[in-house]
Amino acid sequence: MTAQAQQPLIILGSPRSFTSLICAMLGQHPQAYGMPELNLFITDTLREMVDELSGYRQIQLHGLMRVVGHLYAGEQTMASVDMARRWILGRLSKRTTDIYYELCERVGPLRIVDKSPVYSLKREYLERLGEAFPDAYYLHLVRHPLTQGESIMKVAKGLMAILADSIDYDVEPPQVDPQISWFNMQENILDFLDHIPAERQLRLRGEEVLNDRRNGLSEICRWIGIKDSDTAIEAMMHPEESPFACLGPLGAHLGNDINFLRSPALRDGSIRLGDLDVELPWRNDGRGFNPEVVEMALELGYT
């Protein structure tokens, strides 16, 4: 790993914060390569990662298997899934960082755009990422905690929040409440970014990027130093052209948010902003946002 151009652009954000869509859009830039969720930095070695992602968490390997199939075989098929498994097995003793470097070399000179929301769950993940790529650029993509929470709760009856232990245990019975993970992840991200030079981090509200796409994309391009020509912007208006913007083959059908995979194209219409002074629709006790969530949201520019 030597070339500056191969330092990835990492999108940090909580789930359901437009990270899939905007990652796919940026990934269509002629100088970039949008990845599905690689999740590589959750462990030191690939063996540890495979061990950790067992059972229902196997789906978190889908992104890596799709990438390997596409890059090394030019296809995403059941045969390439088998091939990708062998690819992984042959590298079990390697550091996940080295696996990431290999992928960077493979797509070079294109720059990887990566969004793996799981990284924001734990500081150790982010620190591992920071050590691997000391010159990476970080796009902190935020979404209003109300609409983000509503979106989370629409996915499998709040399963994503449950898996992230976003549960209010102070009430009886405990209640699933996505604002908890929203806050924790934003806090992790902000703490991590405290140690990143200002010029290599950019915070944007996802709603504003998507409501003013061309200007939002142009701003990101200028920030990371890639061209923002009309051709480049037009390419980025077609996230559905990403090879990973669809359901994959049996055995690796995910690798990204399933709603995005089912409907990856940009849609017309503006995205509404939420309100911080509301009764939370996913709770049945009439409570609103916790004070620290409100404070955080205000800091992020929401009202």
Binding site: H70, L71, Y72, A73, C246
Partner: peptide, 22 residues
């Protein structure tokens, strides 16, 4: 569901060019 093979080719695509399948 769109077949990944049918995605528009990029000017620079680091993916391996697809081989022959059955």
């Amino acid at each position: 569901m769109m077949d990944p093979h049918e995605k528009r080719l990029r000017a620079m695509d680091p993916a391996t060019k697809p081989g022959l399948s059955l």
